[in-house]
Amino acid sequence: MGLLKDRYCIVGVGETEYSRDSRRTTRAMAVEAIKKAMDDAGLGPKDVDGMLSYHQNDSTPSLIVGPDLGIRLNFWIDMIGGGSSIEALIGIAMGVIEVGMCRTVAIFRSMNGYSELRIGGTGARGAAPVRGQDLATRPYGTMSPGQAFAPSFMRHMYDYGTTSEQVAHVKVAHSKHASQNPKAFYKERVTVADVLSSRWIVKPLHLLDCCVETDNATCLIVTSAERARDLRQRPVYVMGVAGRVSKPRSDFAFAHGPLSRVAGYYAKEIVFPMAGIGPEDVDLTGSYDAFTFTTMLQLEEYGFCKKGEGGAYVSSGIIELGGKRPNNTSGGQLCE
């Protein structure tokens, strides 16, 4: 994989409005986001021949979306997934281009995440039949990601003395960043006191510790560095990639390793050697901020601070714009 460093690029980005009542189909939103990404890159329908997406049975397949844009696909995949799926799909895009299966790949996610199928275990998701892995959780009341993550967060607080006040600084930082982002859903800056006074969702998560549920679609376009030289935007080179890295078990996580460990512990052993750098060489980070606590745990596990020091790290000002290593400068999922 080291041989692929800087040989592939992200050349276009597109997104729809972030709303809570899109009144549009996921098909229409996907088409808009992909078209905007193609325009951003200076590409037409004949220039894109691969398409990838991820979903949770809440989107529209690539094989439907592609023809709506006049694209005939040489390769497409729609995989079931959640966080870190985009990174995995970037790696897959690089691989299929490398072996000659296609030349340029559009990667999208489209969902009505508030007005239709909400992640939080209510509405249509909550009414779905209990089967498969849900048999170990839903009969006992575990219906949402917040409930699933909470034991890891609580264990970190128990083991290392991490406080809700410290972790609330993640929301504070991201809200400052979002206040400068015209596309963010929540642009209002919040304080630590605001986070701690918001209502409980599941201990230790307050409402403002949780990400925003919105209707939207986004798209990235990946192609070779050679091809990127002729396109509209300055390309973003991919130095290394890891995605869908998992812990030994995702269901009974307590059976292997510290309960507060997240998959970044394993992913860092892939992505940093690929890129030929270490955490100390990174000036800007982007984290999966489904919750304030997930950002804190990820930054720890990737080595930006020592294990147990995440609370102090995120509350030090380092993750804010103007700090040593800003995180999620768009406002992230906590605000977008």
Rank of each mutant, 00 (worst) to 15 (best):
Asn112Cys: 08
Gly113Arg: 09
Tyr114Arg: 11
Tyr114Ile: 00
Tyr114Ala: 11
Glu116Pro: 00
Glu116Tyr: 10
Glu116Cys: 10
Arg118Pro: 02
Gly120Asn: 13
Gly120Leu: 02
Thr122Met: 01
Gly123His: 02
Gly123Asn: 05
Ala124Ser: 13
Arg125Ser: 15
Gly126Ser: 02
Ala128Phe: 06
Ala128Pro: 01
Pro129Trp: 04
Val130Asn: 03
Gly132Ile: 07
Gln133Lys: 10
Thr137Phe: 04
Thr137Gly: 09
Gly141Leu: 05
Thr142Asp: 11
Pro145Ala: 03
Pro145Trp: 08
Gly146Asn: 14
Gln147Ser: 11
Ala148Met: 15
Ala148Val: 14
Phe149Cys: 13
Phe149Arg: 08
Ala150Val: 08
Pro151Glu: 06
Phe153Asn: 05
Phe153Lys: 05
Arg155Gln: 10
His156Gln: 08
Met157Cys: 05
Met157Thr: 03
Tyr158His: 13
Tyr158Arg: 09
Asp159Glu: 11
Tyr160Ser: 00
Gly161Glu: 03
Gly161Ile: 10
Ser164Phe: 04
Ser164Thr: 07
Gln166Gly: 09
Val167Asp: 14
Ala168Ser: 07
His169Asn: 15
Val172Asn: 05
Val172Ser: 02
Ala173Pro: 01
Ala173Gln: 06
Ala173Arg: 08
His174Ile: 00
His174Arg: 01
His174Leu: 09
His174Asn: 13
Ser175Tyr: 00
Ser175Gly: 05
Lys176Arg: 06
Lys176Met: 08
Lys176Cys: 04
Ser179Cys: 05
Ser179His: 02
Gln180Ser: 11
Asn181Phe: 10
Lys183Asp: 14
Ala184Pro: 05
Ala184Arg: 00
Phe185Pro: 01
Tyr186Ile: 15
Lys187Ala: 09
Lys187Phe: 04
Glu188Thr: 14
Glu188Lys: 12
Thr191Ser: 13
Val192Trp: 05
Ala193Ile: 07
Ala193Pro: 01
Asp194Trp: 12
Asp194Gln: 11
Leu196Trp: 03
Ser198Arg: 06
Arg199Glu: 08
Trp200Gly: 14
Ile201Leu: 02
Pro204Cys: 05
Pro204Ala: 04
His206Arg: 15
Leu207Asp: 15
Asp209Ser: 12
Cys211Glu: 07
Cys211Arg: 00
Val212Glu: 09
Thr214His: 03
Asn216Ser: 14
Cys219Asp: 06
Ile221Met: 12
Val222Asn: 05
Thr223Cys: 11
Thr223Lys: 02
